[in-house]
Amino acid sequence: MRVPEQAHGALIGRVQRDAATRSDHAQFERRRGELTFTVTTGFPGRVTEPDLWLASRIEALLAELT
């Protein structure tokens, strides 16, 4: 999904705030105009309910921007 580069900072901030509300973590990487999010958990090898919620939230935020 393409998101304008000028929207990256606001998107990152919203994802980080949403992650904090669920005690979850989302890492991001910017490279050559691309922005990649990785949802991480405190339980290696497991996908938790907050992880799934955050991934869904990221998708919803992206949909708002496109």
Rank of each mutant, 00 (worst) to 15 (best):
residue 15 V to A: 02
residue 24 D to Y: 08
residue 17 R to I: 01
residue 38 T to H: 15
residue 19 A to Y: 07
residue 41 T to N: 03
residue 42 G to Y: 04
residue 9 G to A: 15
residue 40 T to R: 10
residue 55 A to S: 06
residue 65 L to T: 02
residue 55 A to D: 04
residue 52 L to Y: 07
residue 28 F to D: 04
residue 60 A to R: 14
residue 39 V to L: 02
residue 35 L to R: 12
residue 33 G to Q: 09
residue 10 A to N: 13
residue 36 T to P: 03
residue 19 A to F: 06
residue 5 E to H: 10
residue 41 T to R: 10
residue 36 T to M: 13
residue 13 G to H: 14
residue 47 V to P: 08
residue 16 Q to R: 12
residue 26 A to P: 05
residue 31 R to P: 00
residue 21 T to P: 04
residue 42 G to L: 10
residue 11 L to G: 00
residue 44 P to W: 08
residue 35 L to S: 03
residue 11 L to N: 02
residue 44 P to D: 09
residue 66 T to L: 13
residue 25 H to T: 02
residue 6 Q to L: 06
residue 4 P to S: 08
residue 15 V to I: 11
residue 23 S to H: 14
residue 37 F to D: 07
residue 2 R to H: 13
residue 8 H to F: 15
residue 32 R to N: 14
residue 30 R to Y: 08
residue 26 A to W: 09
residue 53 W to H: 11
residue 9 G to K: 13
residue 62 L to P: 06
residue 13 G to Q: 12
residue 9 G to P: 07
residue 39 V to H: 05
residue 7 A to I: 07
residue 64 E to I: 03
residue 60 A to G: 10
residue 25 H to C: 07
residue 56 S to T: 09
residue 10 A to Y: 03
residue 29 E to V: 12
residue 50 P to T: 03
residue 45 G to W: 03
residue 39 V to I: 00
residue 2 R to A: 11
residue 16 Q to A: 11
residue 26 A to C: 10
residue 29 E to M: 13
residue 34 E to K: 15
residue 26 A to R: 04
residue 30 R to F: 08
residue 31 R to E: 12
residue 53 W to P: 03
residue 7 A to R: 15
residue 36 T to L: 11
residue 64 E to F: 00
residue 39 V to M: 05
residue 52 L to I: 05
residue 2 R to K: 15
residue 31 R to M: 15
residue 58 I to H: 04
residue 42 G to I: 04
residue 1 M to W: 05
residue 14 R to N: 05
residue 22 R to D: 02
residue 11 L to T: 09
residue 40 T to Y: 10
residue 40 T to K: 13
residue 8 H to Q: 06
residue 35 L to A: 12
residue 62 L to Y: 02
residue 1 M to I: 14
residue 22 R to N: 06
residue 38 T to Y: 06
residue 13 G to S: 14
residue 60 A to K: 01
residue 66 T to P: 07
residue 16 Q to H: 10
residue 63 A to R: 13
residue 15 V to E: 05
residue 38 T to D: 04
residue 33 G to S: 14
residue 66 T to H: 12
residue 27 Q to G: 14
residue 31 R to S: 12
residue 44 P to K: 13
residue 8 H to R: 04
residue 59 E to R: 00
residue 41 T to L: 04
residue 65 L to E: 07
residue 8 H to P: 01
residue 28 F to V: 02
residue 9 G to C: 06
residue 55 A to H: 09
residue 11 L to E: 09
residue 63 A to P: 00
residue 32 R to V: 07
residue 40 T to P: 02
residue 49 E to M: 05
residue 43 F to R: 03
residue 26 A to Q: 04
residue 8 H to V: 03
residue 4 P to C: 01
residue 60 A to S: 06
residue 4 P to F: 14
residue 64 E to V: 01
residue 16 Q to P: 02
residue 5 E to M: 03
residue 12 I to K: 08
residue 41 T to P: 03
residue 41 T to C: 07
residue 39 V to Y: 02
residue 23 S to E: 14
residue 54 L to T: 01
residue 19 A to E: 06
residue 1 M to Q: 12
